[in-house]
């Protein structure tokens, strides 16, 4: 059912939601940017709809809520292992179509690739998603080409419309609440973009043979292996385990997992020395092919959702979408090698 709500109505709904959920949305962190006097749009808890930033893309994605950058799994005392407790409340996450498509990728790895991940699953089942309709594409978006510009698996949608907000609700348990706080019912279709500035074309003939292309060499020098592209990506989910003693009491400690990046040194280091993909170009190739080739080979659809955050953030102005578009000639190049 669709609803038209005044701002006060939306805020009343948010307040009721907050009884059972923590509500996360892209917000403006004043002064939170890396440069002085710059803000950062990133995920944070909200109380009111005005806090949600619609007119800019968030620097980091929603994934930090489902997979915290640093997450404690166990607490250790001298002789006990205690599981970290789960959040008291569930979560409502405001996100765009590309990001909701990314949720499917997170589910794929964390729920369907081998054992279900206990920590992911226990939060995931208590999460609801509110779609933020996109009226226009941002600078580096290429969702249309990745077919992630439209989605209907949201629990609700919300966007500004004239002097109020429109919401499409898919969640039966919210229906009466929305009826109560809305001004009227109407047919709502969340906005979506149909055209982007950036286009990508993933050539059909990609195989692991493109690893032999010279196209990757360029990144040996350009890339600084900082990992920003991975950390902002809504579909990157790698982590590293860490065990620690607390410095103030060495008898107790914890085991946690923290986000990892396949671009950063140490990612492949095995105990006793030895590592794989030492060159940044090799790491770039590993990442790019995962996003637009081998994830699909394993799971049937592309990993990349075309949000363009990796392009937005790269300090060396390396464009992922530009790299995808070089795959076509790389395929021809390596085919030629074999002939």
């Amino acid at each position: 059912m669709g609803f038209f709500l005044a701002k006060d109505g939306v805020n009343a709904v948010l307040e009721r939601w907050r009884d059972d959920y923590l509500i996360y949305a892209p917000v403006r962190m004043a002064g939170g940017g890396p440069y002085s006097d710059t803000d950062s749009i990133q995920y944070g808890q909200i109380h009111r709809v005005e806090e949600i930033v619609y007119d800019q893309k968030s620097r980091y994605s929603f994934k930090e809520i489902l997979l915290p950058l640093s997450q404690t799994l166990f607490f250790f005392t001298e002789d006990q292992i205690k599981e970290a407790e789960e959040l008291k409340k569930g979560a409502i996450i405001f996100l765009r179509s590309c990001d909701l498509h990314a949720v499917k990728r997170l589910d794929q790895v964390y729920l369907q690739n081998g054992f279900e991940d206990y920590y992911y699953q226990r939060l995931r089942k208590r999460v609801k998603f509110v779609l933020m309709g996109c009226q226009k594409a941002f600078e580096n978006c290429f969702c249309v080409d990745m077919q992630t510009n439209i989605i209907d698996t949201y629990d609700a949608s919300l966007e500004e419309n004239g002097d109020g907000y429109v919401m499409d609700n898919h969640c039966a348990e919210w229906e009466s609440l929305l009826s109560k706080y809305s001004l009227r019912q109407l047919d709502v279709r969340p906005s979506h973009v149909t055209e982007t500035n950036v286009h990508v074309e993933i050539p059909p003939g990609v195989s692991i043979d493109v690893a032999k292309s010279k196209m990757w060499d360029e990144y040996d020098g350009r890339c600084i292996n900082c990992g920003r592209c991975n950390f902002v990506c809504p579909t990157c989910t790698c982590f590293t385990m860490q065990d620690i003693f607390y410095t103030d009491n060495g008898k107790v400690g914890e085991r946690r997992r923290v986000a990892a990046s396949c671009m950063v040194d140490g990612y492949t280091d095995v105990a006793g020395g030895g590592s794989y993909r030492k060159k940044n170009g090799e790491r770039m190739r590993f990442k790019v092919l995962h996003k637009v080739y081998d994830f699909k080979k394993r799971f049937g659809y592309h990993m990349c959702v075309g949000c363009g955050r990796c392009d937005d953030i790269c300090p060396e102005y390396i464009s992922f979408s530009h790299c995808i578009n070089k795959l076509g000639s790389a395929v021809k190049e390596v085919d030629g090698n074999d002939a």
């Binding site: 962190m29 002064g31 939170g32 890396p34 440069y35 002085s36 950062s40 990133q42 620097r59 980091y60 950058l69 900082c226 990992g227 920003r228 950390f231 986000a259 990046s261």
Partner: peptide
């Protein structure tokens, strides 16, 4: 100098208010 803030890829370091 703020080099840590500039280097941090995840925004763990930010500038003081």
């Amino acid at each position: 100098c703020g080099e840590c803030v500039l280097a941090c890829p995840v925004g763990a370091w930010t500038r003081g208010e």
